Amino acid sequence: MTAAAAGPDGLWIRRFSPADDARVRLVCFPHAGGSATFYFPVARALAPAIDVLAVQYPGRQDRRGEPCVDDMGRLADLVTEELRPWTDRPLALFGHSMGALLGFEVARRLERDGIRPLRFFASGRRAPMRRRSDEDVHRRDDQRLIAELTSLSGTDAQILDDPEVLQLVLPAIRSDYRAVETYRYAPGEPLRCPVSVLTGDSDPQVTLDEAEDWRHCVAGHFDVTVYPGGHFYLTEHAGAVMAEIRRRLADTALPSPIGTAPRLH
């Protein structure tokens, strides 16, 4: 690992461009089959104003020897615990696809513990209560699973064309899809933090109506930004997405005194 990784053990949280003087931390949750390194460019782009923490799930890259976690609730519990040492300053959350569901569940847990995220960015994912009849990717054979990945254009083509590498990464991808597809939204208190939804206008995984339905999970400010592109619109429009994150976090009032995570009252 070339990046600095603070925290109790450095397994879960990666800091690719540590920004120790930043007033805000942005926790980034990868998509299904993704890893913390997906957010390396984000960390470079947002430092030093924002300290980016990228979550590394078990079962991939340097954690490949660990068992994957295929239950969204359990994964959210584990990540929330790992984030506790980082709540000495305001946290914002950003999740793409599977990461948006995980970020939502982590935000719920933080708020239940009295820690209100500064803002939650939900990218490339329909609202948690919206399900589809074809959510069975984790049960498909390898070839059909690979076909799904190819259709979303989010996995490096070199990986998809290398049988040996594929055999290494497919277990984590299948586990992530199982976590997403077996997830069931449990009604509860809406998020009190501001929520910004980002989506691509031709994403086969998310319609505009499905993105708008995130508002039913939110008690406070809510907005939707639509970009040209498909499920991985954010790789095509990285500059615009980074600008949106900077603008939204700059517009969100920080708690006083700085250095203490905002608490619910």
Rank of each mutant, 00 (worst) to 15 (best):
Gly7Trp: 10
Pro18Lys: 00
Pro18Phe: 07
Arg25Val: 05
Leu26Arg: 04
Leu26Thr: 01
Pro30Glu: 13
His31Gly: 07
Gly33Phe: 14
Pro41Glu: 10
Ala43His: 07
Arg44Thr: 07
Ala54His: 07
Arg60Gln: 04
Asp71Lys: 01
Met72Glu: 00
Gly73Gln: 11
Leu75Glu: 02
Leu78Val: 09
Thr80Phe: 10
Leu91Glu: 04
His96Pro: 10
Ser97Lys: 04
Met98Ala: 08
Gly99Arg: 05
Ala100Gly: 13
Val106Tyr: 03
Arg109Gln: 09
Leu110Gly: 03
Pro117Leu: 13
Pro117Asp: 09
Asp134Gln: 13
Gln143Asn: 02
Ala147Ile: 04
Ser151Tyr: 12
Ser151Gly: 06
Ser151Arg: 14
Leu152Asn: 06
Thr155Ala: 02
Pro163Glu: 08
Gln167Asp: 15
Leu170Asp: 06
Pro171Ala: 05
Asp176Leu: 12
Ala179Tyr: 11
Ala179Leu: 13
Glu181Ala: 07
Pro190Ala: 08
Val195Leu: 15
Leu198Val: 09
Glu210Val: 07
Glu212Cys: 10
Val218Trp: 12
Val218Phe: 11
Gly220Trp: 12
Phe222Pro: 00
Val224Lys: 06
Thr225His: 15
Val226Leu: 12
Tyr227Trp: 14
Gly239His: 12
Ala240Leu: 15
Met242Glu: 15
Glu244Tyr: 08
Asp251Arg: 08
Asp251Ala: 15
Leu254Lys: 00
Pro255Phe: 04
Ile258Asp: 14
Ile258Val: 15
